[in-house]
Simulated scan of single mutants.
Amino acid sequence: MKLSKKFKYLSILKNPFFLVTVFFVTWIAFFDSYSLLEHRSINKEIDKLEDNKSYFENEISKDKRAIKELKNGDATEKYAREKYYMKRTNEDTYIIEFDTIEQK
């Protein structure tokens, strides 16, 4: 009985349809230009790009809010004072820079 089981498995391995199927599956999984490994790397890249897309959409919405605020006169003045160190004619501007080295 044991010999018949061995011959049964051996005959399956010698079957040309089985061999072609194994070859096909191996080829598709590893060697084809659209292999499973390639799909995996492409899916990772897609996920990364979708994360970037959501980040930039949030940044766009922040910038749109900032533009709306800058259209108001007070916000424009504040922005000009902070970013470009602009001042009125009768004012003095002092720029204070903090040292990043810790003091003991």
Rank of each mutant, 00 (worst) to 15 (best):
M1V: 01
L3H: 02
L3T: 01
L3G: 02
K5D: 01
K6L: 06
K6N: 02
F7Q: 01
Y9E: 06
L10A: 05
S11E: 02
I12F: 04
I12K: 05
I12G: 00
K14E: 01
N15D: 03
N15Y: 00
N15L: 01
P16T: 06
F17E: 06
F18R: 01
F18D: 00
F18L: 02
L19K: 08
T21V: 12
V22I: 10
F24K: 10
F24C: 12
T26D: 13
W27C: 11
I28A: 13
A29N: 12
F30G: 03
F30E: 02
F31L: 11
D32V: 14
D32A: 15
S35N: 12
S35M: 09
S35H: 06
S35L: 11
S35W: 10
L36Q: 12
L37F: 15
E38S: 14
H39W: 15
S41M: 13
S41F: 15
I42H: 12
I42N: 12
N43D: 12
N43R: 14
K44G: 15
K44L: 15
I46M: 11
D47M: 10
D47E: 14
K48V: 08
L49I: 06
L49V: 08
L49R: 04
L49P: 03
L49G: 03
D51V: 05
D51G: 09
N52C: 09
N52Q: 12
K53Q: 05
S54A: 09
Y55K: 03
F56I: 02
F56N: 04
F56Q: 03
E57G: 06
N58V: 05
E59C: 03
S61A: 08
K62S: 11
K64G: 10
I67D: 10
K68Y: 11
E69D: 12
G73L: 12
A75R: 04
A75D: 09
A75P: 01
K78V: 11
K78G: 03
Y79C: 05
A80V: 02
R81V: 02
E82D: 06
K83N: 07
Y84P: 00
Y84F: 05
Y85C: 04
M86A: 02
M86C: 02
M86T: 05
R88F: 15
R88M: 13
T89L: 07
T89D: 07
T89W: 03
N90H: 07
E91Y: 03
D92C: 04
D92S: 08
D92H: 05
D92L: 08
D92R: 04
T93W: 01
I95G: 04
I96S: 08
T100H: 13
T100C: 09
E102P: 04
Q103M: 10
K104H: 10
